[in-house]
Nucleic acid binder design. Structure first.
Length: 482
RNA sequence: GGCCCCGUCGUCUAGUGGCCUAGGACGCUGGCCUCUCAAGCCAGUAACGCCGGUUCGAAUCCGGUCGGGGCUACCA
């Protein structure tokens, strides 16, 4: 059997990390089984759905490298993968269910329902729909609708009854229908609810496995019931535990950034995000944590997914991002960071600048956890004059050794030949020796003078990349400021 | 409240009755390296929620309890 899975977000918000993990797991499962991964848009909530959110979902998916075989934007066997464009189909299904007696019209108004719900809550009884319209005569109901009365359509849940299914991650789960109320499948506006649209699409698109968040676990009997009323499906379900914030509560904005877009903009690499997300509820098996996409595809299995909710912890994500940054090839690294440097210094880098950057790049690459840090670290190479970090200045330039080191460096570097990393290092070490300065103190003064900060890329490489003229200028400027 | 799900280091997890004096990773602490900061290497820190039961033997099985989470809409 060919696996067909779908990721079906509602465009009512940015793609968040939890949704991205669900998409990833679907994708890994499909790729590992030679299946089809479908991207659907569950946009029946016209109030909250927007084109901008839809676009963000697509962009974020592409950024993460999660390509889809069928779905919005790429097409496929179906005419459309947007639920808002399949409204006729859902109405047709609702009509069929009505005719078959599997569904009935409900004339209760939202106000009435709300009131009854509140009352039930107050009495401590079940707040679900009480089923009163289920007893109405269908012919009479049809007359009332034709007369213009507003009605929703509810599924007539078989009672007594029970829905039992074997969830791939959770095992056997059962729901007594006494706890599944007659839910609305078609609103009085004629719009389908999520339950109807989603279930119809899963059946129509021949989905074999529904992999989604645990928040939908208790809706699953509803979806299975619709599927059965439609003639039966043999969809397998896998419910992923939800992501939590550091406080153990459901992950939300107040825990910090949850949108994939925010991580992208903060300088995270898609490879790192993907790898980190995969580790939330799944383990490659051995003691590895950094695994390639191919390895993930090869080893992934839904049955190995953990049942426990996972806390989204950015500390580990950051570490992993550093690992992936260090794995980048030099050209790739430069390509990804040049735009950030240009933005920071406010101008584009010409060929010489670029050469300078390539020279220093390997040294900042191994120091960065986030891409934008790279720009901060090389900024001193592309500005006319450094701005001294006051804390650094106070800490190192007020020491008596500063004057000696600056003066000595000026003398040694003035006619250094050739101008190279090794040459600079040799000259400066000789200078230290001559004046009896420690490397720690002596070099720190030069570092602040040249880069403006007590933290910078390695000194000799920095000076070599800066060039003789600018280095001497900066040493003089710092000397005068002492 | 009702229904459902879950419970191993601070965090992500390995673990499916003896291989567990519970392994790995992140974090944290210390050390080495060292021109700063990183990286790297080494070491350390730290967990089976609790109570019963089954068993020769339980992190693993069962029951209870406590705790957390989800759902309980004409949202998804």
């Amino acid at each position: 059997m060919t696996v067909r899975v779908r990721f079906a977000p509602s465009p009512t918000g940015y793609l968040h990390v939890g949704g991205a993990r669900t998409a990833l797991f679907n994708w890994l499962f499909a790729r590992g089984r030679g299946g089809t991964f479908i991207l659907r848009s569950d946009d029946t909530d016209t109030e909250r759905s927007t084109a901008a959110f839809q676009e963000d979902i697509l962009e974020s998916m592409r950024w993460l490298g999660l390509d889809w075989d069928e779905g919005i934007d790429v097409g496929g066997d179906e005419a459309t993968y947007r639920q808002s464009e399949r409204l006729e189909r859902y109405r047709e299904v609702a009509d069929g269910l009505l005719d078959a007696g599997d569904a009935y019209r409900c004339f209760c108004t939202p106000e009435e329902l709300d009131e009854r719900r509140k009352q039930a809550m107050a009495e401590g009884s079940a707040p679900g729909y009480d089923g009163r319209c289920r007893e109405l005569d269908p012919a009479e109901a049809t007359r009332r609708v034709e007369a213009g009365e507003a009605a929703s359509v509810r599924l007539a849940v078989p009672r007594p009854g029970e829905t039992v299914f074997d969830d791939i991650v959770r095992g056997e789960v059962r729901f007594d229908h006494a706890n599944v109320d007659d839910f609305v499948i078609l609103r009085s506006s004629g719009m389908p609810t999520y339950h109807l649209a989603s279930s119809v699409d899963d059946a129509d698109f021949r989905i074999t496995h529904v992999v989604r968040g645990e928040d939908l676990l208790s809706s699953t009997p509803k979806h299975i019931l619709i599927g059965e009323a439609l003639g039966g499906t043999d969809i397998r379900y896998a419910h992923l535990s939800l992501l939590q914030g550091p406080d153990g509560r459901k992950l939300s904005k107040r825990h910090g950034d949850t949108a994939i877009k925010a991580y992208r903009e903060a300088g995270y690499l898609p490879e790192a995000m993907r790898n980190y997300l995969a580790l939330l509820g799944w383990s490659p098996g051995d003691d590895e944590t950094v695994v390639t996409l191919d390895e993930m595809v090869e080893r992934f299995g839904l049955d190995a997914v953990s049942k426990n909710p996972a806390v989204f912890d950015t500390a580990k994500l950051e570490w992993m991002n550093g690992v992936y940054i260090r794995e980048l090839g030099l050209d790739d690294f430069v390509d990804r960071t040049v735009p950030l440097v240009e933005t920071l210094v406010g101008r584009s880098l010409d060929a010489d600048d670029r050469a300078t950057f390539v020279e220093i790049a390997p040294h900042v690459q191994e120091r960065a956890k986030l891409l934008p840090e790279v720009a901060d670290q090389v900024r001193f190479l592309f500005v006319d004059a450094v701005e001294y970090d006051e804390t650094s200045w106070q800490k190192v330039m007020t020491a008596p050794e500063a004057r000696i080191a600056l003066d000595g460096a000026l003398a040694r570097l003035g006619d250094l030949d050739p101008w190279s990393v090794d040459g600079v290092e040799a000259a400066l070490r000789e200078m230290l020796e001559e004046y009896g300065l420690s490397a720690r103190k002596g070099f720190q003064s030069l570092r602040v003078a040249v880069s403006g900060s007590s933290v910078s890329p390695p000194l000799f490489e920095s000076i070599a990349a800066l060039g003789r003229a600018r280095t001497l200028d900066r040493l003089r400027a710092a000397f005068q400021r002492l």
